[in-house]
Amino acid sequence: MGESETIGVGLLFEEMTEEHLAGVLDIYNYYVLNTTVSFHTEPLTLDEMRQSVLNGDPRFKSYAVMQAGSLAGYVLITRHKNKQAYDTSGEISIYLSPDSGGRGIGGQALMFIEQKAAALRFHALVATVCADNEHSRRLFTRHGYEQSALFRQIGRKFGRWLDIASYQKIIGPADQSNS
């Protein structure tokens, strides 16, 4: 079993395992089918979700967010770009179950993944969200992320054009080497 860590009031962050996959898939597919949070237009399969969150690379981690023994969401850090110069940058994502929003879980998940990323010697973190997603935009801004890009009409879902915004936060020292 992977590592786990308790943070905040009643939140347990467990390293993602096979036993979390079905619940994580349900959370993600809710956003696929009902919102513009995800730019997938078709639900993912269990195998596709497994590839997404259990990639086997020790630097890129996924954590189940547990509250009172139930899956409240998940948070992950993935490769930003697959080129060596980007190895000190990570892309972060947070997905909460639809009934877990508005309780501070997203902010605690963000602080948790930032601590993990700093321990893994990441220098910069990037989060990319649909520009319609005001909750996520406020979350990242409130935690020190700055909007670094806006791509207009980059995706199409539910019969309309969608923009995405990228947010960035430097978490490592300016003189950090990649050795």
Rank of each mutant, 00 (worst) to 15 (best):
M1Q: 09
E3Y: 03
E5L: 07
I7H: 08
G10C: 02
L11I: 12
L12S: 03
F13R: 02
F13S: 02
E15C: 03
T17D: 12
T17N: 06
E19H: 08
H20W: 12
L21V: 06
L21F: 09
A22I: 11
G23R: 09
G23I: 11
L25V: 02
L25R: 13
D26L: 10
D26G: 01
D26R: 15
I27N: 00
Y30Q: 00
Y31H: 00
V32E: 06
L33D: 09
L33C: 04
N34R: 02
N34M: 04
N34E: 08
V37H: 04
S38H: 05
S38E: 14
F39Q: 03
H40V: 00
T41D: 08
E42W: 05
L44D: 09
L44M: 13
L46D: 03
D47A: 15
E48M: 14
M49A: 01
M49N: 02
M49T: 10
R50V: 06
R50S: 08
R50Y: 06
S52P: 01
S52K: 08
S52E: 10
G56R: 08
G56P: 06
F60Q: 15
F60Y: 15
S62G: 08
Y63W: 10
A64I: 12
V65C: 06
V65T: 11
M66T: 05
M66D: 05
Q67W: 11
Q67Y: 05
Q67A: 12
A68P: 03
G73S: 05
V75E: 05
L76D: 15
L76N: 11
H80K: 07
H80N: 07
K81T: 13
N82R: 10
N82T: 11
N82D: 15
N82S: 14
N82K: 10
K83L: 15
Y86E: 14
S89P: 01
G90L: 11
G90S: 06
I92K: 06
Y95N: 11
L96R: 03
G101M: 06
I105R: 04
G106S: 14
G106W: 01
A109G: 05
L110F: 09
M111D: 13
F112P: 02
F112S: 03
F112D: 04
I113D: 09
A118V: 06
A118C: 03
F122I: 09
A124L: 11
V126L: 15
T128A: 07
C130T: 13
A131V: 10
A131M: 12
D132F: 13
E134A: 13
E134I: 14
H135E: 10
L139Y: 00
L139R: 00
T141W: 00
T141V: 02
Y145R: 02
Y145M: 01
E146V: 05
Q147H: 00
S148N: 03
A149W: 09
R152P: 03
Q153G: 05
I154R: 09
G155P: 04
G155Q: 07
R156M: 08
F158Y: 14
F158P: 01
G159E: 07
L162M: 08
D163L: 07
D163I: 10
D163S: 14
A165C: 14
A165S: 07
S166E: 12
Y167F: 13
Q168L: 12
I170S: 03
I171W: 08
I171V: 11
G172V: 06
P173W: 07
A174Q: 11
D175F: 14
N178Q: 04
S179K: 10
S179Q: 09
